[in-house]
Amino acid sequence: MTTEARGVTKRFGDRVALRDVSFSVGEGELLAVIGPNGAGKTTLLSILAGILRPDEGEVSRPPEEIGWVPQQPAVYSKLTVRENLRLFARLEKVADPDAVVARMLEQTGLADRADDELGTLSGGNRQRVNIAVGLLADPPVLLLDEPSSSLDPRQRERLWEFVDGLAREHGTSVVFTTHNVAEAERWADRVLVLADGEVLFTGAPQALHRDAKRTGVDFETAFVRFLRAQGH
Protein backbone atom coordinates (compact mmCIF):
# COMPACT_ATOMS: atom_id res chain seq x y z
CA MET A 1 0.00 0.00 0.00
CA THR A 2 1.52 3.32 -0.93
CA THR A 3 -0.75 5.37 1.27
CA GLU A 4 -3.43 4.68 3.79
CA ALA A 5 -5.89 6.40 6.14
CA ARG A 6 -7.00 4.62 9.30
CA GLY A 7 -10.02 5.65 11.34
CA VAL A 8 -9.70 9.32 10.44
CA THR A 9 -12.15 11.63 12.22
CA LYS A 10 -12.17 15.40 11.87
CA ARG A 11 -14.40 17.88 13.65
CA PHE A 12 -14.81 21.62 13.10
CA GLY A 13 -16.40 22.70 16.35
CA ASP A 14 -19.64 20.70 16.62
CA ARG A 15 -19.65 19.72 12.96
CA VAL A 16 -18.17 16.36 12.14
CA ALA A 17 -16.50 16.73 8.74
CA LEU A 18 -15.13 13.17 8.64
CA ARG A 19 -16.23 10.19 10.69
CA ASP A 20 -13.97 7.16 11.03
CA VAL A 21 -12.75 7.14 7.44
CA SER A 22 -10.40 4.31 6.41
CA PHE A 23 -9.10 3.43 2.96
CA SER A 24 -5.89 2.72 1.11
CA VAL A 25 -4.46 3.30 -2.34
CA GLY A 26 -2.08 0.94 -4.03
CA GLU A 27 0.85 1.64 -6.29
CA GLY A 28 -0.22 2.90 -9.70
CA GLU A 29 -3.85 3.05 -8.62
CA LEU A 30 -6.29 5.90 -9.34
CA LEU A 31 -8.87 6.44 -6.59
CA ALA A 32 -11.77 8.84 -7.18
CA VAL A 33 -13.43 10.38 -4.11
CA ILE A 34 -16.94 11.47 -5.03
CA GLY A 35 -19.80 12.88 -3.02
CA PRO A 36 -22.03 15.93 -2.67
CA ASN A 37 -20.88 19.43 -1.64
CA GLY A 38 -19.71 19.54 1.94
CA ALA A 39 -19.26 15.76 2.07
CA GLY A 40 -15.72 16.14 3.42
CA LYS A 41 -13.68 15.45 0.25
CA THR A 42 -11.41 18.48 0.59
CA THR A 43 -11.04 17.84 4.32
CA LEU A 44 -9.98 14.25 3.62
CA LEU A 45 -7.39 15.29 1.02
CA SER A 46 -6.09 18.06 3.28
CA ILE A 47 -5.51 15.52 6.04
CA LEU A 48 -3.69 13.20 3.64
CA ALA A 49 -1.62 16.18 2.46
CA GLY A 50 -0.66 17.14 6.00
CA ILE A 51 -2.42 20.51 5.89
CA LEU A 52 -4.93 19.49 8.56
CA ARG A 53 -4.37 17.22 11.50
CA PRO A 54 -7.02 14.57 12.17
CA ASP A 55 -8.71 14.57 15.58
CA GLU A 56 -8.56 10.79 15.58
CA GLY A 57 -6.89 8.22 13.36
CA GLU A 58 -3.77 8.55 11.24
CA VAL A 59 -2.37 8.64 7.74
CA SER A 60 0.60 6.59 6.66
CA ARG A 61 2.82 8.93 4.67
CA PRO A 62 4.67 12.11 5.62
CA PRO A 63 3.56 15.18 3.62
CA GLU A 64 6.92 15.62 1.91
CA GLU A 65 6.29 12.45 -0.11
CA ILE A 66 2.91 13.59 -1.34
CA GLY A 67 2.11 15.91 -4.25
CA TRP A 68 -0.87 18.11 -3.52
CA VAL A 69 -3.07 20.08 -5.88
CA PRO A 70 -5.53 22.08 -3.78
CA GLN A 71 -9.01 23.00 -4.90
CA GLN A 72 -8.14 26.72 -4.82
CA PRO A 73 -5.04 27.60 -6.88
CA ALA A 74 -2.17 28.01 -4.40
CA VAL A 75 0.20 30.05 -6.52
CA TYR A 76 1.37 33.68 -6.54
CA SER A 77 -0.63 35.94 -8.82
CA LYS A 78 2.13 38.57 -8.98
CA LEU A 79 4.70 36.08 -10.28
CA THR A 80 4.87 34.84 -13.84
CA VAL A 81 4.03 31.25 -14.73
CA ARG A 82 7.72 30.41 -15.06
CA GLU A 83 8.64 32.16 -11.78
CA ASN A 84 5.95 30.24 -9.91
CA LEU A 85 7.12 26.92 -11.28
CA ARG A 86 10.78 27.73 -10.70
CA LEU A 87 10.14 28.89 -7.11
CA PHE A 88 8.36 25.69 -6.14
CA ALA A 89 10.87 23.54 -8.04
CA ARG A 90 13.64 25.13 -6.00
CA LEU A 91 11.74 24.78 -2.74
CA GLU A 92 11.08 21.12 -3.61
CA LYS A 93 14.84 20.82 -4.22
CA VAL A 94 14.37 19.03 -7.53
CA ALA A 95 17.67 18.13 -9.17
CA ASP A 96 17.43 20.34 -12.26
CA PRO A 97 14.80 23.05 -11.70
CA ASP A 98 15.08 24.61 -15.15
CA ALA A 99 14.61 21.31 -16.94
CA VAL A 100 11.60 20.43 -14.79
CA VAL A 101 10.08 23.88 -15.35
CA ALA A 102 10.54 23.52 -19.11
CA ARG A 103 8.89 20.10 -19.02
CA MET A 104 5.94 21.43 -17.03
CA LEU A 105 5.47 24.40 -19.32
CA GLU A 106 5.38 21.93 -22.18
CA GLN A 107 2.99 19.61 -20.36
CA THR A 108 0.53 22.36 -19.40
CA GLY A 109 0.71 23.91 -22.86
CA LEU A 110 1.53 27.27 -21.28
CA ALA A 111 4.99 27.75 -22.81
CA ASP A 112 3.76 30.80 -24.75
CA ARG A 113 2.36 32.39 -21.56
CA ALA A 114 5.43 31.51 -19.47
CA ASP A 115 6.38 35.11 -18.81
CA ASP A 116 2.89 36.42 -18.07
CA GLU A 117 1.90 37.21 -14.51
CA LEU A 118 -0.41 34.56 -13.18
CA GLY A 119 -2.98 37.15 -12.19
CA THR A 120 -3.50 37.97 -15.86
CA LEU A 121 -4.30 34.34 -16.79
CA SER A 122 -7.78 32.88 -17.10
CA GLY A 123 -9.10 30.78 -14.21
CA GLY A 124 -8.53 27.55 -16.12
CA ASN A 125 -4.97 28.46 -17.06
CA ARG A 126 -4.25 29.36 -13.46
CA GLN A 127 -5.55 25.95 -12.46
CA ARG A 128 -3.17 24.35 -14.98
CA VAL A 129 -0.24 26.04 -13.22
CA ASN A 130 -1.66 24.97 -9.85
CA ILE A 131 -1.71 21.36 -11.04
CA ALA A 132 1.78 21.62 -12.53
CA VAL A 133 3.19 22.82 -9.18
CA GLY A 134 1.81 19.72 -7.48
CA LEU A 135 3.53 17.49 -10.06
CA LEU A 136 6.97 19.15 -9.98
CA ALA A 137 8.69 16.78 -7.58
CA ASP A 138 7.47 13.51 -9.14
CA PRO A 139 5.84 12.44 -5.85
CA PRO A 140 4.97 8.76 -5.28
CA VAL A 141 1.49 9.83 -4.18
CA LEU A 142 -0.55 12.57 -5.88
CA LEU A 143 -3.65 14.24 -4.41
CA LEU A 144 -5.85 16.24 -6.82
CA ASP A 145 -8.81 18.19 -5.41
CA GLU A 146 -11.28 18.80 -8.26
CA PRO A 147 -8.43 19.36 -10.69
CA SER A 148 -10.57 19.40 -13.83
CA SER A 149 -13.45 21.60 -12.66
CA SER A 150 -12.33 24.75 -14.48
CA LEU A 151 -10.64 23.13 -17.47
CA ASP A 152 -11.99 23.03 -21.00
CA PRO A 153 -12.68 19.56 -22.48
CA ARG A 154 -9.40 19.41 -24.37
CA GLN A 155 -7.31 20.35 -21.29
CA ARG A 156 -9.34 17.92 -19.23
CA GLU A 157 -8.47 15.13 -21.61
CA ARG A 158 -4.79 16.14 -21.56
CA LEU A 159 -4.78 16.25 -17.76
CA TRP A 160 -6.28 12.81 -17.29
CA GLU A 161 -4.10 11.26 -19.93
CA PHE A 162 -1.07 12.70 -18.20
CA VAL A 163 -2.20 11.56 -14.75
CA ASP A 164 -3.08 8.12 -16.09
CA GLY A 165 0.39 7.96 -17.66
CA LEU A 166 1.97 8.80 -14.26
CA ALA A 167 0.09 5.96 -12.63
CA ARG A 168 0.78 3.41 -15.34
CA GLU A 169 4.39 4.31 -16.09
CA HIS A 170 5.75 5.63 -12.75
CA GLY A 171 3.49 3.67 -10.42
CA THR A 172 2.24 6.93 -8.88
CA SER A 173 -0.76 6.48 -6.58
CA VAL A 174 -3.42 9.09 -7.36
CA VAL A 175 -6.34 10.23 -5.21
CA PHE A 176 -8.63 12.74 -6.88
CA THR A 177 -12.01 14.27 -6.19
CA THR A 178 -14.48 15.31 -8.82
CA HIS A 179 -18.11 16.22 -9.29
CA ASN A 180 -17.93 14.87 -12.80
CA VAL A 181 -19.09 11.35 -12.14
CA ALA A 182 -18.47 10.23 -15.69
CA GLU A 183 -14.85 11.28 -15.29
CA ALA A 184 -14.58 9.15 -12.17
CA GLU A 185 -16.09 6.21 -13.97
CA ARG A 186 -13.80 6.59 -16.94
CA TRP A 187 -10.43 7.15 -15.24
CA ALA A 188 -10.62 5.74 -11.72
CA ASP A 189 -9.69 2.18 -10.81
CA ARG A 190 -11.83 2.52 -7.72
CA VAL A 191 -14.29 5.06 -6.34
CA LEU A 192 -14.87 6.06 -2.75
CA VAL A 193 -18.28 7.59 -2.09
CA LEU A 194 -18.32 10.06 0.76
CA ALA A 195 -21.42 11.78 2.19
CA ASP A 196 -21.71 13.75 5.42
CA GLY A 197 -18.21 12.66 6.36
CA GLU A 198 -18.92 8.95 6.11
CA VAL A 199 -17.69 6.41 3.58
CA LEU A 200 -20.76 4.91 1.89
CA PHE A 201 -19.01 2.79 -0.69
CA THR A 202 -15.57 1.79 -1.91
CA GLY A 203 -15.04 -0.39 -4.92
CA ALA A 204 -14.78 -0.47 -8.68
CA PRO A 205 -17.03 1.98 -10.51
CA GLN A 206 -18.58 -1.02 -12.22
CA ALA A 207 -19.87 -2.30 -8.88
CA LEU A 208 -21.65 0.99 -8.24
CA HIS A 209 -22.85 0.80 -11.80
CA ARG A 210 -24.13 -2.76 -11.80
CA ASP A 211 -27.75 -1.94 -11.06
CA ALA A 212 -27.60 0.98 -13.38
CA LYS A 213 -26.39 -1.19 -16.28
CA ARG A 214 -29.36 -3.46 -15.84
CA THR A 215 -31.89 -0.64 -15.79
CA GLY A 216 -30.15 1.16 -18.65
CA VAL A 217 -29.37 4.50 -16.87
CA ASP A 218 -26.00 6.25 -16.97
CA PHE A 219 -23.42 6.25 -14.15
CA GLU A 220 -24.40 9.67 -12.82
CA THR A 221 -28.05 8.70 -12.43
CA ALA A 222 -26.96 5.49 -10.75
CA PHE A 223 -24.78 7.49 -8.35
CA VAL A 224 -27.60 9.87 -7.44
CA ARG A 225 -29.95 6.90 -6.93
CA PHE A 226 -27.34 5.28 -4.72
CA LEU A 227 -27.03 8.38 -2.56
CA ARG A 228 -30.79 8.72 -2.29
CA ALA A 229 -31.11 5.09 -1.25
CA GLN A 230 -28.60 5.78 1.51
CA GLY A 231 -30.70 8.67 2.80
CA HIS A 232 -28.66 11.53 1.26
Binding site: A49, I51, I66, P70, V75, F88
Partner: peptide
Protein backbone atom coordinates in the same frame (compact mmCIF):
# COMPACT_ATOMS: atom_id res chain seq x y z
CA UNK B 1 -4.41 34.96 0.93
CA UNK B 2 -2.68 33.37 -2.08
CA UNK B 3 -3.39 29.94 -0.47
CA UNK B 4 0.33 29.25 -0.76
CA UNK B 5 0.84 29.00 2.99
CA UNK B 6 -0.51 25.44 3.14
CA UNK B 7 1.69 24.40 0.24
CA UNK B 8 4.78 25.97 1.83
CA UNK B 9 4.53 24.60 5.34
CA UNK B 10 3.86 21.01 4.34
CA UNK B 11 7.53 20.15 4.17
CA UNK B 12 8.90 22.94 1.95
CA UNK B 13 9.77 25.38 4.75
Amino acid sequence: EEQAYGRLVRGLV
